[in-house]
Write a protein that binds this DNA or RNA. Structure first.
Lengths: 147, 147
DNA sequence: TTAGATGCAAATGTTTTGCAGGGCT
DNA sequence: AGCCCTGCAAAACATTTGCATCTAA
């Protein structure tokens, strides 16, 4: 069991850092989400099925909830379809570009927020803790396809 | 019936501009949301009840959906609690500050987005159509209360 | 008059929960 | 061993839909 333990052990490390038991469900879900865009519970179940693994829906819900509560995943409702999505939460903060053509969700490292929290403080008397930015538009493939 | 027809008639004007029938449900819901923060369907039903009015839940859902489809309301899932909220859509674009203390949703006129779409184009090859920005933090009252 | 809006009740789909059994530390 | 995790089934909840009735244009 020496192969590709890089992934494995980093997932396990993250779990133990948060004082969470290392279970099959948590390793599978966290492992999948470290290398994928935000996914719904249903999509996670399908991905597991495609790999010959199986977890009950309630376990996936509970696992995602636990991992979110511990800051390893982020729960979002990006698409306003009423279905929650979970994504791996990298150290830094991340925004999303959502393609209106294909629905793809593209993580964006850059952030336009800048010094805006100063304005929020002075103009609105609001102390900013965090923010979320979602960008809608069209990716290259969809622009090409729609042309 | 001369009193406060300013509100009334502007709501009716907006409806007819969109070629929508002017019905009691649409006048009530649009009228309420023009002077309130984003509300869930349940909250709208309660507000109506408090005013001695009554609409079935399905009517509220359908009315909000119609008004959103016609650009008079915006459907959002700001709080990730899985419950949709509808807000009056002003002409310009608006962002929100969400207080983590009291849950209040504060409309923000300013926008930090700036020239960010140029970066999105050059770095990610993504053509920006629109964006949404949500700001989390604490309002003055909650900061005072928590102190 | 007639297309479309409403109310009611039933259906749908997502998410949560109770409980018994099993796994991790 | 002890506590937490998991699976299953049932419950809870928001939202949608079918259909008969009513209403605005």
């Amino acid at each position: 069991m020496q192969t590709d333990c890089g992934e494995e052990s980093s997932v396990e490390t993250k779990l133990s850092e948060k004082h969470l038991k290392i279970t099959k469900a948590r390793k599978l879900i966290l492992g999948m989400l470290t290398q994928a865009s935000p996914k719904t519970v249903d999509e996670l179940a399908s991905m597991l099925g495609a790999n010959g693994e199986k977890l009950s829906l309630s376990t996936i819900y509970r696992t995602c909830e636990t991992l979110s509560a511990n800051g390893l995943l982020l729960k979002t409702n990006l698409t306003d379809d009423g279905i929650a999505r979970y994504e791996y939460l990298k150290s830094g903060h991340v925004h999303h570009a959502i393609c209106l053509g294909c629905g793809r969700i593209i993580p964006i490292d850059d952030c336009p927020f800048g010094q805006f929290d100063r304005l929020m403080q002075s103009k609105y008397d609001f102390a900013v803790s965090s923010h979320r930015i979602e960008i809608y538009g069209y990716c290259r493939e969809c622009r090409r396809r729609l042309k």
